[in-house]
Design a protein around this nucleic acid. Structure first.
Lengths: 345, 345
DNA sequence: TTGTACGCGTTATCAC
DNA sequence: GTGATAACGCGTACAA
């Protein structure tokens, strides 16, 4: 009752199976398949044919046990929505190259206990290294020195200066945002951003104010407007701003969601964007930028690039055993221009 | 120059190290640590103390090589933003329990070649099973029968009926959406949704229309309005709807983004939500629901639960070798009520 | 060119 | 109660 209807799964073939079927020793089979040493051409072909037929896949576990390296890396995140960690993971995947290294993704859900637990599990699996992705840009506690493999902190740096960290350059992000607005002819530029408790907010503001000062301009509204990271604050702050300073011609926002709120209020009040007022966001989050009217210009943190850099750093640390690595690296942001800062052609 | 300043990493301790340090054989050490067989209490304590001191972690690779099981599962997604796969992964992580099973996350980026590649890499790592998360709810090609481990298709079912699939019950989702609107006193209910090429759109529409018919009501607007899955369509469709049928009292949308568009237009036209018109979304995507005015009621697909179900099914398939499993499972949606369908107290 | 034998770190099965 | 020893699947010196 089972001959063909239910194709039962067969045990995966081992090198021994291949060797036996090809009528050679496992050493020869191994050499043939790995291209090591000298193997006669027809022997090699026979082995390959058999391996193909049996769908032989070398047992990576056994290889690892021998080599001491697993070709796996753990990525621990606390970013529940995966908004930051997914692009970072994709970048890391890229950098690790075609399947040579695979990534265990773990979600600590902001819980230190759970994080510790995942670290233990990953170490038991003998990962070659760890990437820890923070949930905000604020420095986070180090996992400590007792970990037998290299650790790279991505997005959120470690509080420990001797650890390896890769972060976004938010100061530069703030700077190029303002530069873009100045370049498109704006002079009265305001800055609405998130909570001052976040380094991201303070750094972006510092960059923005710095660029304004260098250009001999003052911040419109008189001060950086810190508040919640949401649309409601974007709306509220924009209203306050326009009341106090009706002739502003650009609003640089610390997040796309804040910018979205700003856009909505400007629209309600009949201000033309970008004609009267330009609006620039931060994060370049497609969900928000694409659905705004007009489409939202934004600063992109290049998280995928950040993932690549983190992966390369980890890779180097694994290989060099922390020879001479740059312990703190930062990834530059770039401006993505859309209709909210420049008139569409 | 290196005694303490640069705490060089040490090789991870092995069972042999522990045994030697404790002055026992590796067999005894193993027994003591695993609680197998009889070991004298003080011997056990000594072994534990040494293991603790050396930060001994059993090499899972070696254990796996012996047991033939790795306690790992591959999760392959094509959902670039991770909007669906992240909650599904979290659910799976939950179901697999505390660190007993770990998940390799791979992003195929919608590319069949890359997917195949990841499958191969995962099989080489001897994962115990595979979860494949689709990017839409449309049935997707099967990975085929040649895979030596169980495969569960999540979110998007496999085209192959004999494969294991877990999906959201979109028909039921459409049904409970309409029921909620009827329960809150609505009678002229319209339905704006995504592209008809998507099963998700058609299924939700079918459920919605079914529930209306059962209640003796007709669909306002005369037909299901299919269109792009974005805010712009939500806005356009809502305008058309109100022109043709000004006295509708509820709009059920096939996605939160479409609903967001509908809300914006209603707001522009001075219609009160939910007083004049109720708006109900689908996906319960916090980013959108929380930033809407008023906050958006929505249908939740319970993706985390879906992940749990998929993981349990996979687990059962691994254990039972596909004994008597329900090959096709679906997860019910639920209504999440917020201000856009019921007046806030 | 090919085969034999060892070791990677565990667990399990024997003896003692 | 404890200690040798054989697996697990592979790569590789070494011998043939």
């Amino acid at each position: 009752m089972d001959g063909d209807a239910v194709p039962e799964r067969v045990r995966a073939a081992t090198l021994t199976d291949v060797a036996r079927a090809a009528g050679v020793s496992i050493a020869t089979a191994s050499r043939a398949l790995n291209g090591r040493g000298e193997v006669r051409a027809d022997t090699r072909d026979r082995v390959f044919a058999v391996a193909e037929r049996l769908a032989f896949r070398p047992n990576v576990l056994a290889q690892n046990l021998l080599s001491g390296r697993t070709g796996t890396v753990g990525l621990i995140t606390s970013d529940l929505e995966g908004r930051f960690s997914i692009p970072i993971m994709m970048g890391a995947e890229d950098a690790f190259g075609a399947g040579a290294t695979q990534i265990f993704l773990c979600d600590a859900r902001g819980d230190a206990i759970r994080e510790r637990h995942h670290v233990e599990a990953l170490l038991a699996r003998r990962v070659d290294g760890l990437i820890v992705v923070g949930s905000s840009t604020n420095p986070r506690p180090s996992l400590g020195r007792s970990i037998p493999v290299p650790v790279v902190y991505a997005y959120a740096p470690s509080q420990e200066a001797s650890d390896l960290s890769v972060v976004s350059d938010n100061v530069q992000g703030g700077r190029i945002g303002v530069q873009h607005l100045i370049d498109s002819g704006r002079k009265r530029i305001a800055h609405i951003t998130g909570e001052a408790e976040y380094n991201a907010a303070r750094d972006r503001a510092a960059g923005a104010v710095g660029a304004l000062t260098e250009a001999g301009l003052e911040l419109a509204g008189g001060r950086v407007m810190y508040g919640p990271w949401n649309e409601a604050w974007g709306r509220g702050a924009t209203r306050m701003l326009l009341e106090h300073d009706p002739d502003i011609d650009a609003i640089f926002c610390g997040s796309d969601q804040i910018a979205r709120g700003a856009l909505d209020v400007l629209h309600e009040l009949g201000r033309d964007v970008p004609g009267d007022v330009a609006v620039l966001g931060f994060d370049n989050w497609a969900v928000v930028t694409a659905s705004s009217r007009p489409e939202l210009s934004s600063i992109d943190m290049q998280l995928q690039e950040l993932g690549r850099v983190a992966a390369n750093l980890l890779f180097a640390a694994i290989a060099d055993d922390e020879g001479k690595l740059e312990h703190h690296q930062s990834v530059a942001c770039r401006v993505v221009v859309r209709g909210s800062t420049t008139p569409t052609a």
